[in-house]
Design a protein around this nucleic acid. Structure first.
Lengths: 258, 258
DNA sequence: TTATGAAAGTGTAAATAAAACACTAAGACC
DNA sequence: GGTCTTAGTGTTTTATTTACACTTTCATAA
């Protein structure tokens, strides 16, 4: 556990034997100050002969893992390939392994077209990730990558819709017990942005004054002597999340009592 | 999701192809009114020729899964084999898949002695389970099965100690947000038993009066007109967990706010 | 320069929950 | 009848939650 290599030192295995039974899927969440988004990849397939469009839908970002690769590292690698960023917030939330994961003909066609056997059972370990930055590459393995508002998604390829739902559940649980939503915001953020994020993720409306009273009690949220700029209204004060203060006082947070 | 077969109808696959890359490990918790226990299996190996004891330690209960078996069902099957009981509380908590899971020579020797290749990578999906009843069979695949207090465990076979720690973490998180500890108690229990359970699992001391005030607010914990019997002191009132009331009022519990 | 729009920021009172704390009650057993 | 052991109870103080409305500050347009 100790002496983990720093991210700078990490070299993502790009070669090696692929493990054929386990993959990793990443549910990458983002926030554009309006919607909670998830990063999805276009899945398009045309008939080789007729040119007819056979498939046109969306998948999560996921990948097989290498035989000598840690699960966490495989997830980090996918994120790195997508964004060029390391040290992104990442959390394993559930493993999906139903023997019936591949049922729809679309999915079978896609797998066959990609040289894979739709009958072979593949387990996928689900990770969700919180991504603040938007400077991501918009290509992944030659496929188009897009931010899609979670609230507009009703179906996805394979069992990815189910995976997304589970990720959302896990995120909601996490969010009410640990301060991690800063990961979805720029390092300097306003309280209104933070409040909106909670509201969208939890699907509730919060009172502005009460929300701020609560924030005031969290000493790890520190107000800067710096205001928002270039907005057509009263500019808000900027805040940062102070990890040092948080870690220091963290212990007390553990005895939640029942 | 709907029309799941009832437990009574469930027939556990005892034959079929085994999946060689994924297994399921169950961390089965129990409570004897004194300790939080976990169900462990003796792992003993003698040298075929000299009779010397090569290995004598403990493992979690776990098993390979069948090729056409759901992960949840595999976990249920293990519990059924162990206890003869169905519908036991079960929760997937983490998946372990480090390429270095098998490192100690003991573990390699054991695997080889059991006709398995210590070099092949196996992923294991961790489930924890809460088991109230103690009428379990004390054998599993011909091996001895024992309840061991969690507080006395410092090492286990393979990476099972790590798995146990993760299960404990997950249980602690669960316990402070959802009323599930009833699963570790007889259906009729006393408030002192419940309090002790919280104290042991969370590693804290709770005030008796404040604890009871909190319980009083939980309308799904209903007091029976029935007292404890056969104790050498003032007998306590018995309580039950009323799942109907709980499910009915559950929605409000969701908006925890932040 | 003034007016307008749009979000930021602020306080108080009432209700509820949390925390701290010590004695009496009821049964079993001798 | 006495002793042992755990059950069961109430009050006060402090902290948290909830509900609720007006003023401030900036950019922009008139």
């Amino acid at each position: 556990m100790s002496h983990l290599p720093e991210a700078e030192d990490k070299v993502y295995t790009k070669t090696g034997t692929i493990n054929n039974s386990v993959s990793v899927d990443c549910v990458i969440f983002g926030f554009d100050f309006t919607n909670l988004n998830v990063l999805l990849v276009d899945r398009v397939l045309y008939d080789q002969e007729t040119g007819e469009e056979l498939i046109n839908d969306l998948t999560l970002t996921g990948n097989h893992i290498f035989e000598h690769e840690e699960l966490d590292d495989a997830a980090s690698r996918i994120l790195f390939e997508l964004t060029g960023l390391e040290n992104i917030y990442l959390e394993q939330f559930y493993t999906f392994g139903s023997p019936n994961r591949i049922q729809r003909t679309k999915d079978k066609i896609w797998l066959e077209a990609n040289g894979r056997n739709p009958k072979s059972r593949i387990f996928t370990v689900g990770y969700y990730s919180l991504l603040a930055s938007e400077n991501i590459t918009l290509q992944w393995k030659g496929r188009n990558v897009r931010w899609i508002p979670v609230s507009t998604i009703y179906e996805l390829a394979f069992d990815h819709f189910e995976i997304l739902q589970k990720a959302l559940q896990a995120l909601r649980k996490k969010v009410i017990t640990e301060p991690i939503l800063f990961e979805l915001l720029p390092s300097k953020f306003t309280l209104s942005q933070l409040q909106k994020l909670y509201e969208i993720i939890l699907g509730i409306k919060l009172d502005k004054r009460n929300f701020r009273k609560k924030i005031a009690r969290m000493d790890y949220l520190t107000k800067l002597e710096e205001k928002q700029q270039g907005v057509a209204h009263k500019p808000a004060w900027l805040y940062i999340f102070d990890r040092n203060i948080y870690e220091k006082n963290r212990k007390e947070l553990l005895d939640f009592a029942i």
